[in-house]
Design a protein around this nucleic acid. Sequence first.
DNA 1: CGCATTCTGTGAAGTGTAGCACTAAGTTCC
DNA 2: GGAACTTAGTGCTACACTTCACAGAATGCG
Lengths: 211, 211
Amino acid sequence: MERLEDPPDVVIRRLPLYARSLRYLLDEGINSVSSQELGERINVTAAQIRKDLSYFGEFGKQGIGYDVEKLFNHIERILGLTQSWPVVLVGVGHLGQAIARYDGFHSQGLQIVGLFDTDPLKIGQKVADVEICAYAHMPQVIHDTNARLAIVAVPASDAQPVADILIDAGIRAILCYAPIILQTPDDVWVRYIDPVAVLHSMTYYLAREHM
Amino acid sequence: MERLEDPPDVVIRRLPLYARSLRYLLDEGINSVSSQELGERINVTAAQIRKDLSYFGEFGKQGIGYDVEKLFNHIERILGLTQSWPVVLVGVGHLGQAIARYDGFHSQGLQIVGLFDTDPLKIGQKVADVEICAYAHMPQVIHDTNARLAIVAVPASDAQPVADILIDAGIRAILCYAPIILQTPDDVWVRYIDPVAVLHSMTYYLAREHM
DNA sequence: CGCATTCTGTGAAGTGTAGCACTAAGTTCC
DNA sequence: GGAACTTAGTGCTACACTTCACAGAATGCG
């Protein structure tokens, strides 16, 4: 029986990992998988996978497991990945360029449709076939492309004003690489990528080894 | 009274955010802060900050709050950031170069002491004053520099063998940018940076708006 | 100098998530 | 075709984390 409750956010965050693992299984030509096997690949317990999926329906067969392709398609549909999502990227420094050039976005339904920077020398140039524009063009591009997703790869000092412009222009979800917590309205989703903080949390454990 | 229990990992993960926010406060010339004010800056409740800190001691003054510099130094000490940590980086593509060139690592106690790649054209070149070496040199460099931290920025297909080499050479903590879950011994810490998965978890919510 | 105010540290209560363990359903093989 | 085996879905339990709410400590002000 299908559940009535909304799936918790932790579950939503795991879905992309399930989807990716299933994609790899497909590439390997494996077309059936049990929760046990899938769990071993991504270091999650079998029970957790089954419970997570149960928020969305019943996708497996008892005694067999899951049809890889069918489950993959289901999860893509749940995540809204049957369509391609336009994304704008603000900040075309080393990191921004690396992101713009990474084809992992494009192949996974994320199309970079706008690049923005403040550097006059960069404006007008192209990276990965997309022209770099001034901040002033953000609202227009976001409107024209109907982008709802943005990646912020600017220095910490610029991130908040950039986020304000983006949100004002209609962006509803931000992936922020700047080392700062953004202040945003409740109806905007913000997630952070913060390698320095992650490394610092690991130095805690390393410093405690052999003590 | 100091607590006896080990602080949970979620707490450890928040400490770097506290430290960073305190650093910004210092830069602003603010030298006293309440848990309330600190919490508003990083979107965490005041109670959570106080409870988190209570795992490590008593750092505040009732009626006053926390001395910014003292608390900052305490957290740095807890995280083991009174020393600089040598880090090796494997994979010097666009992303690897962006990481190697980012001075946010160096200024935060993370010194990149080794760069490795398989591309013969890259080997021998320097990025940010560090020479790119072949994989074969990894054990030697890790031994010589006493590195315990590694960043993996190679394609998914190379990540597992690279991790195996690193761990074998003495690396104890890995920050993995490759879109794959690494299989590692229990005494090695692994964290992932996975922008595509993060964006995919947000498309879930965007796809459900106006429904 | 004492009362109102501010703010920490923490036991207790509340919340949310993960894992267990069982039922039921499907498969395989003899 | 039936016995042994595999595995999904799920109620329940246990645990871990967060939040509440209050006691105690420091300050300021009238």
